[in-house]
């Protein structure tokens, strides 16, 4: 009966659980933001970015169904774009780090 091939088997409950995890992670970010100690010792930025990475992983895998994607092309396409992006980051920062006297 189902003719669309990429049938997704996630039920409502799993979506709500993922959403709950996202809300809790946002709460943690907010907690870190409002704690003076965390902001001062420099841990806030790496923690906040790690949380953002985890949250986007949840959205990609569950809401966007990447986890259940069987197509080979996704395994090439997405890492390739990420690799290009990291090359941009690496080149930009190696430039910034070794520049001298240029404002």
């Amino acid at each position: 009966m189902k003719s669309d091939k990429h049938e997704v088997s996630l039920n409502y409950r799993s979506y709500v659980l993922v959403w709950l995890a996202l809300i809790i992670l946002t709460g943690i970010t907010y907690g870190v933001a409002t704690s003076e100690g965390m902001r001062l010792n420099g841990f806030a930025a790496p923690i906040a970015l790690a949380i953002a990475g985890t949250k986007s992983g949840l959205v990609l895998n569950y809401f966007m169904h990447l986890r259940s994607e069987r197509l080979q092309i996704f395994r090439i396409m997405i890492p390739l774009v990420m690799a290009v992006f990291f090359v941009f980051i690496a080149l930009t920062f190696s430039d910034l780090a070794f520049r001298q006297g240029v404002k």
Binding site: T26, T29, V32, A33, R39, A44, A45, A48, L49, I51, A52, K55, S56, V59
Partner: peptide, 12 residues
């Protein structure tokens, strides 16, 4: 937005 949020609001 998940990435804009920690970068602009006073978190870091």
């Amino acid at each position: 937005w998940i990435f804009l949020y920690p970068l602009f609001y006073p978190i870091t």
